[in-house]
Amino acid sequence: MRATSEQRTGVEPLTHAREAVGRDGACVVPGDEVMRSLGVDDQGWAGFAGHWDDLRPDPYAARSGTQRLRRYGRFVVSPEGRREPAPVEEFRQPGDSNRLFLDEGRVFDPLTEELLADPVLDGLLELLGGIAGVLDDPPRWVVHVHPFRVLGSADSRGDATPEGRHQDGVTLVSSLLVGRENATGGTSEVVDADGREILTTTLAEPATLLVGDDRRTWHGVDPIRPVDPRAPARRDVLVVTFMPEEAR
């Protein structure tokens, strides 16, 4: 359950995260801090994580042998955090930001009504909008929402980013760990334009949040593999990006 605005004392939104992204280009926010900011308890988080059991196969990632499931949603969000649904068009990244798909339009199943109605999603968009406001101040943001599940096995790669180190062609990029099971690897790396490391982290605890200024950083995640080879490795994340509406 999402707490009221009076209870959510952490939402002004994570001052140190705003400062770190503006200064360094990226930062990691611990899961317990994100949970407090969202006003979510373990039961509420478990309900949110349950939406990842209703994703659909990603046929584009499958070309490179990656077993990935996902959905996709698109919104226009005001600076006050008001969310308006936008037509779900094909998802397209600039050709110079993602060399694997080279400006290819990709079509994915839309977000479920249950996920759209989950108050955790609204809280997260509010939190991220506050961080994005350090980087730009457009009249409205276009927000792309991508729930992902990546699976790895003893004989297949669990590539979260089969395109390798890349940009998303947006202003703010974020990755929220929803859950992982029987997985080793999955280390996230963020570097600057010259390839110098800004941070390296393995998102291990649920609700841990990685945020970055996509205009001046590149990011990638190494593959996951199962700890117990008799069962698949699983890594569930929510990737949310912000860009000015006029730049869409």
Rank of each mutant, 00 (worst) to 15 (best):
L177K: 03
R149W: 07
A3F: 13
R225W: 11
F91S: 08
M35C: 08
R140G: 07
E6W: 14
T66E: 06
V40A: 00
G195N: 02
A117N: 03
V221H: 07
P110F: 04
P226F: 05
G44E: 10
R82E: 14
A231G: 05
R140H: 10
L116R: 06
R71A: 14
E205W: 05
D109Q: 04
F148Y: 15
D236M: 06
E6C: 11
N182A: 12
E163N: 06
Q67S: 11
R82I: 13
V77Y: 13
H51R: 13
T184W: 05
R225N: 10
G179N: 10
G186R: 11
L121W: 03
D192T: 05
D122L: 10
A207H: 03
V29S: 05
P162R: 07
L176H: 01
R68L: 07
D109N: 05
T9V: 12
L102D: 15
T171S: 15
R2C: 08
T241S: 12
G212V: 00
G50P: 11
R92V: 14
V227A: 09
G81Q: 08
I224C: 12
T112M: 00
M35P: 02
H219F: 04
V40M: 01
I131T: 04
T208M: 12
A231I: 00
D136V: 01
T202Y: 06
A207D: 02
G50V: 12
T112H: 02
D32G: 03
L151P: 11
P79G: 03
D194I: 01
C27F: 11
R165T: 14
D137H: 11
G39I: 04
Y72F: 10
N98H: 10
D236C: 08
S97L: 05
L151E: 13
P57F: 08
R140Y: 10
R63K: 13
L176S: 03
F48H: 05
R2I: 13
G164A: 07
R216F: 09
H51F: 14
Y60A: 06
L121E: 00
R71G: 12
P162F: 04
S78K: 04
R215K: 04
S5Y: 14
E163S: 09
V145R: 10
H16W: 13
W45M: 09
V40G: 00
V134N: 00
T15W: 08
S64W: 14
T217C: 12
R71W: 10
R235D: 02
V120P: 01
G133Y: 12
Q43N: 15
S175E: 03
E19V: 07
D213P: 08
F148C: 09
R63I: 11
E90R: 08
R235C: 08
R70W: 12
E181N: 08
R106M: 14
S78Y: 02
E197R: 11
T66A: 13
F101R: 15
Q7K: 12
H16C: 11
A132I: 03
V88N: 07
A86F: 10
G22A: 15
V221E: 09
I224H: 08
P229T: 13
F75E: 03
W218H: 04
R8I: 04
P226V: 01
V221S: 05
E89Q: 03
V40D: 02
R165D: 13
H166L: 06
L121T: 01
D41C: 10
E80Q: 15
S175L: 06
S5C: 15
G152R: 03
